[in-house]
Every structure is written in C-alpha cells, then in structure tokens.
C-alpha cells in the first residue's frame, strides 16, 4: 500500500474520539493514550490492557528475564516479541454492525 492512499482515505475515528469529540475530554484522551471513557468497547479496553501490560513487562527488567528463562529465549528476543505484539495484542477488531 502506498503512503498516499493511506492519507486520502476518510479518517475513521476510534470510538474514543467519536464520543468525546467537541468536548474538553477530547484533548485529554488525545494526550493520555489508554484513558477509558463511558462508551469504551470491550475490544478497546482489552487492547489497552494488553498494551499496558506488554509495555510494563518490557519496562521491568526482572520480568523480561523471568519470561526469557521460562521460554528459553534471549532477553532481547522477548523484548522484541512483546513490542511486536503491542501492534495488535488481541487480534483484529470485531466487525461493526452498521
């Protein structure tokens, strides 16, 4: 996919932005990624939880060592796979019923 195509596509807002648009909360939500709100879907919440957890694992050296020992992998590999998994920790989002 070329970069251009991506930019011209209509911007589909995440539910966070959709429901908080035009409020002061919008600013806060943009600033503090991962903050929840009343209309958070289960998928979004779970994805936030997983991303927080994964970054916490990478951020605490004893935890990465712990996982590396259990799995028989190098610490560097564990960190990399954890960071990779942050891209989509809970699979693709559920289909929207329009």
């Amino acid at each position: 996919m070329s970069r251009k195509q991506r930019q011209t596509r209509p911007l589909t807002m995440s539910s966070e932005l959709r429901y908080t648009a035009n409020t002061q909360l919008e600013h806060l939500h943009a600033r503090y990624t991962g903050t929840g709100h009343a209309d958070l879907t289960k998928y979004e919440w779970l994805t936030h939880q997983h991303r927080d957890t994964l970054s916490s694992i990478v951020g605490h050296p004893p935890l990465t060592s712990y996982l590396a020992i259990a799995d028989g992998e190098a610490v560097g590999r564990v960190k990399f796979e954890m960071t990779e998994r942050m891209l989509q920790p809970c699979g693709p989002p559920p289909k929207k019923d329009d």
Binding site: T33, G34, R51, D52, S55, S56, V58, G59, T83
Partner: peptide
Amino acid sequence: ARRIVPGQYLATDPKGRSVMIAAMEK
C-alpha cells in the same frame, strides 16, 4: 514504567548537544 511516559529508551547526540528520551509508545 508506563506505556506513554518516557524512560524506556535513551539516545544521545554524539556531539553531546542533545538527548532524546522515549516511551514505549508515542
């Protein structure tokens, strides 16, 4: 050790003029 609070990565300019500190995300 939060997702969007810097501290996870550090990079310095080789001439010592500036430093970048980054989080896991954003």
